[in-house]
């Protein structure tokens, strides 16, 4: 115990250990994790539903079907209306702000925990990696559920508009019509939604986590939320 040797360098933890700690943390904080994940789910569900709905409209208009309800709208025969573009941009903004906010809150309320871990010998990089893993997992699962819910919502809307025709012309895969805009297809929209949700969650949490990890522990532990 009488240590007078020069102070050695702290070791890096094996990846498996970080993975284990981050999953433990998600599991025990299940209720709170669900709320954070729900924030991501809602944002992505909104975005994907609007986007998928648009894809459906494009595909069915391409096939010559008109919405039974929206026939009088300004929708051009083939293409996206300005209203749709506006809706997609709005939903994207709601999604970005919503996810960034829920991740920011989730990390800020854990500043004290970050300070404590540093007292016990955690390296800054370890703290950031922990949050990266947690938020990446939350982001992906939240976004996947959100994307599926959003697609379901868009399908229900599509059924109301086009009836069963929807399934004959369902834009599952990307397509390039002879005229008009490129159609991404629902699968690509779902994938994009998942990737976007994950990236936003990771950025939203790793930035504040990185900031907290850089603080001296005394300051991190002083932070009141």
């Amino acid at each position: 115990m009488n240590q007078r040797a020069p102070i050695e360098e702290q070791i890096d933890l094996p990846f498996v250990e970080s993975l284990r700690i981050s999953f433990q943390s998600l599991k025990i904080r299940f209720g709170r994790s669900i709320i954070t994940t729900a924030g991501i789910t809602l944002g992505i569900a909104f975005l994907v539903s609007v986007w998928t709905n648009n894809e459906i409209n494009l595909a069915l208009q391409e096939s010559g079907r008109q919405s039974q309800i929206n026939t009088f709208e300004e929708t051009t025969q083939q293409g996206i209306s300005t209203k749709d573009i506006w809706l997609i941009i709005m939903s994207l903004i709601v999604c970005v702000v919503g996810i960034a906010n829920s991740m920011l809150m989730a990390v800020t309320e854990r500043f004290r925990e970050i300070g404590t871990m540093k007292c016990l010998g955690a390296l800054d990089g370890f703290v950031v990696r922990l949050f990266l893993l947690e938020s990446g997992f939350q982001g992906f699962s939240g976004a996947l559920i959100g994307a599926l819910l959003g697609t379901l919502g868009a399908i229900i809307l599509g059924l109301k508009d086009y009836g069963l025709d929807l399934f004959f012309y369902f834009p599952l895969l990307p397509a390039q019509p002879e005229e008009g805009a490129m159609q991404l297809g629902v699968i690509v929209v779902i994938l994009l939604g998942c990737v976007l949700g994950m990236i936003l969650a990771v950025i939203g949490s790793s930035f504040p986590a990185w900031r907290a990890a850089k603080l001296p522990p005394a300051e991190a532990m002083r932070t009141e939320v």
Partner: peptide
């Protein structure tokens, strides 16, 4: 940074007024 982390890990034990336990563990 690595030496400071190792110092906190090996040479010092901290006890705080508000315990600072990780409540998830």
């Amino acid at each position: 940074q690595r030496q400071i982390a190792a110092f906190r890990c090996h040479r010092v034990g901290y006890i705080f007024q508000s315990y600072n336990l990780l409540h998830v563990r």
